[in-house]
Structures are given as C-alpha cells and as structure tokens.
Amino acid sequence: MNGGDGRIARRFAALAREGRGGLVTFITAGDPDAKTSAKILCGLSGAGADLIELGMPFSDPMADGPAIQAASLRALRSGMTLKKTLAMVKDFRKRDADTPIVLMGYYNPIYIYGAPKFLADARAAGVDGLIVVDLPPEHDDELCLPAMQAGVNFIRLATPTTDDKRLPAVLNNTNGFVYYVSIMGITGTRAVSTDHVRQAVTRLKRHTKLPIAVGFGIRTPQQAAEVARVADAAVVGSALVQTLAGNLDKKGKAKPGLALAVLKQVAALAKGVRGARGKPVKAA
C-alpha cells in the first residue's frame, strides 16, 4: 500500500490540477475543550484549509514551542485522551468525507494505546495519516510499517539537518507527503526564509515524488503565500493556536468568539495561499 489512492493523494492531485499550493492547518484536539475544538475542526475546511493536522495532546511535547506546549496542556486539563481524539475524527468524518486528516504527536500515548489497536481504530475513524515526531526511521518496525500496511499514511519530517546521505533513509518508508521542517528549532519560534525553503524543496524533490509541505515558522498570509509558491503546501500551527489562546477568559475558558476568530484567520491564510501562484505576491 503506497497511499496513492487515499484522501491525501487525491487532495494533492486536485491541488496540482488547480495549479496552487495547499494550506495545512494545525490545531490540538481538545484545545481548549472538546466542544470548542470540534467546532473549529468542522469549520476548517469551509474556511479554506486543504488538509488538517490534528495534534494528539501529550504531557511532554519536546519538539514544540511554548504555544503548542500550552495547547497540549489545556487539552489534557480539559480531559482529552487519545481515545477521545479518535472519536472527534469519527464525528468529523460524518460531515466531511474528503478533507484529509493527519494526526500529529508523540509516540508514547500510541504505544500505551497499543499500536495495532490504534491503527485499526484510527483507520476506522477516518484518519488518513500520522506524523509521530519522536519515531525516526530507526524504529520503523514499531509503527511506520504497520501503519502503511493498515492503509494509514506515515508522514515523515525532514529537517535542515537531514543531509543528502540521510535523506534516502528518511524517505524510504513513507507516503502521503513529506513534511519539511523549515527551521532548526521547535514549533513557532523562528521565521522562515523563502530562499531556504526554495532550495530545500528543490533538494527534496530530487529524492522523492511525494508532495512537500513546509511548516514551522509560518505565521502570516504573506509567508504562507510565499511558501505555497515554492512548495506543495504550507503548514500553519502556532499562529492559529496563539489566536485561540488570545480568545480565552481569565479562567482559561473559551470566549464566545473563539472558534470564529481562528476560522477567520484560516480564511485569510487560505486567501494568501490561493493567490500565491496567480500573480506575484509583493515581498514583505
């Protein structure tokens, strides 16, 4: 199973036909609470997200910056679990049969859930892909290979430190798309340079036919547009999570306009991405 017939492949094929890059949005499941989070999730596609990354909250998100760390802790405090995250995807799938959902997180909750059971439940819920930050190719037998066999795409992170020698190992067992981490660092902390992204995407394309999504450090519609011009998709996470955090009351509860504020931002990002390849976007 190479994932070529899944929702992710179909979506990237459609984007290619439209001649534009896609917008991938990240939110954490259960942030700030299950109900609000589900409301945002169900509005993302309508606001213009082409693919959805849904964070599986973890107590110790080592590769994340302060914004997504806080999101993870809010979600856990509100009672989110991996089981509830899968249930959330299942509900979403009843309304939306087409938008790909990728679960993103750390290995331990999956390991404790039990990898085979998790894959079966994820597939049944309508999950299309997985990004597991702390599972390098050295441990492919644990989740990557079983996932690909179960028909769930296993998406790999490539980084500026993944040199040409290591790239084949990283791209060996993977499908869906390649997630290029555009900065050295944790999520949401450094700005991305378009020149670097262009070079990196060109380098990756020499090694793989899979679509390349670029993330970490993309905040504005302008930046998203610039990235979407040279890559197959731009990923925005921390910026959305920060908007969400800005719409909490003093007790950390969602204010009434929270979901709308996040979705409005998604719409603005989508507009930037959609205009990117049509006419040149003025440099910032």
């Binding site: 290995y107 702390d134 390098p136 050295e138 980084t159 430190t161 993944t162 040199d163 660092g185």
Partner: peptide, 20 residues
C-alpha cells in the same frame, strides 16, 4: 546495534536531532 537493552533504550528523538 539499535541501542536497545531488551525492549528498552533505543533512539526515539525528532529527526532534527537524529544526525547529531
């Protein structure tokens, strides 16, 4: 050779760190 003692150990880190 994978850095494991039985099922324990290993190298469960983000890709950025793997080459290092």
């Amino acid at each position: 050779e994978r850095g494991q003692f039985g099922i324990h150990g290993g190298r469960y880190v983000a890709e950025t760190l793997m080459p290092l």
